[in-house]
Simulated scan of single mutants.
Amino acid sequence: MVNTGKELIDICQKKNMKIWEYTIEQEAISTEKSKEDIFKNMKKSFQVMKDAAECGVRHKVKSVSGLIGGDAYKLNEYCNQGKTLTGTFMVKAMARALSCSEINAAMGKIVAAPTAGSCGIIPATIITAGEKLNKSEDELIQSLFTATGIGIIIAKNATMAGAEGGCQAECGSASAMASAGVVEMMGGTPQQALNASAIVIKNILGLVCDPVAGLVEIPCAMRNASGAVNALTTADMVMAGVISRIPFDDTVSAMYKVGKQLPCELRETALGGLAITETGLKLKRKVLGK
């Protein structure tokens, strides 16, 4: 597998391949499995994603702590009333992202994509975009491989851990991966997919990780919803011809450096940000009893 976005674009252009095709090819080489088996495995993961994205939309799911729950259901009910400001497409995406986060907090089954804290962004983005574009399930799974290819490069050159790089590393990486997947789903080139990822990262650069009571619930769930919106709106910008003046590799490098510059209080320790506000501390005492 290539190490940088530039290398990925070059090899895809040379071989006349999409990112998803290259990703599967490399996975087959590294695992010594057939492309068919690799695709089947991703299909199983996609089913888990779909279930997590829909369960909270259809049912009022509460987290084990009681801090979050039922918001995906509320959004779906609101969507069904036909009175949304941003339209049913965007509200559905937000609801699905919240659903995955709620399922995670309720100890349900999710796909860490790339982390549990950001598990709703890729499913919500890919599923909702595919629905809008009338894409087949196989085409949606191809988009997941595109997202995977981007994620591998981010992991090689930066981090996806909130404890190391803040929420920008979790929700930022997930949004960048999702937007690239949607761009290729829309017929975009590898170059356009990388432009989308770069723009997304710029939009979320510096986001801290400050979970209330140390739990992946507040503000994590809401950040999944905004991450999905970030990915989808950026895909439209790129398909309109907008490019990122700062290339993907530079944005990944910047994200890593910014993450290292964040104080430990803002890197998943629950010692800063929203976690130590008056309300944040009250919620902590309510959940943990101290």
Rank of each mutant, 00 (worst) to 15 (best):
Q47N: 14
S34V: 04
I24G: 00
S175H: 05
A113N: 05
V238I: 12
G82Q: 06
A106N: 11
I154Y: 02
R96M: 14
I204F: 07
G69C: 07
P263Q: 06
L133W: 05
M42V: 11
C167L: 05
I141R: 00
I201Q: 12
K14E: 15
A28P: 06
E54Q: 15
G165R: 04
G259T: 05
A178L: 04
G87V: 05
G151I: 07
N80R: 12
L144K: 00
G117R: 01
T148G: 13
M239G: 00
G289Y: 06
T125W: 04
V242C: 01
V208N: 03
I204E: 03
K62F: 14
I127V: 10
I276C: 08
L140Y: 08
C209A: 11
A180W: 01
I152R: 09
T4R: 05
A174C: 06
E32W: 00
R223M: 07
L215T: 04
S143C: 14
G70I: 02
Q81C: 08
P247M: 08
E139L: 00
L281M: 10
E25L: 10
D250P: 06
E278S: 09
K74I: 11
K60T: 15
N3A: 07
L194S: 05
L274W: 10
V258F: 06
C220G: 02
A163C: 10
I110F: 07
P247H: 01
G259N: 03
L262S: 02
P114Y: 02
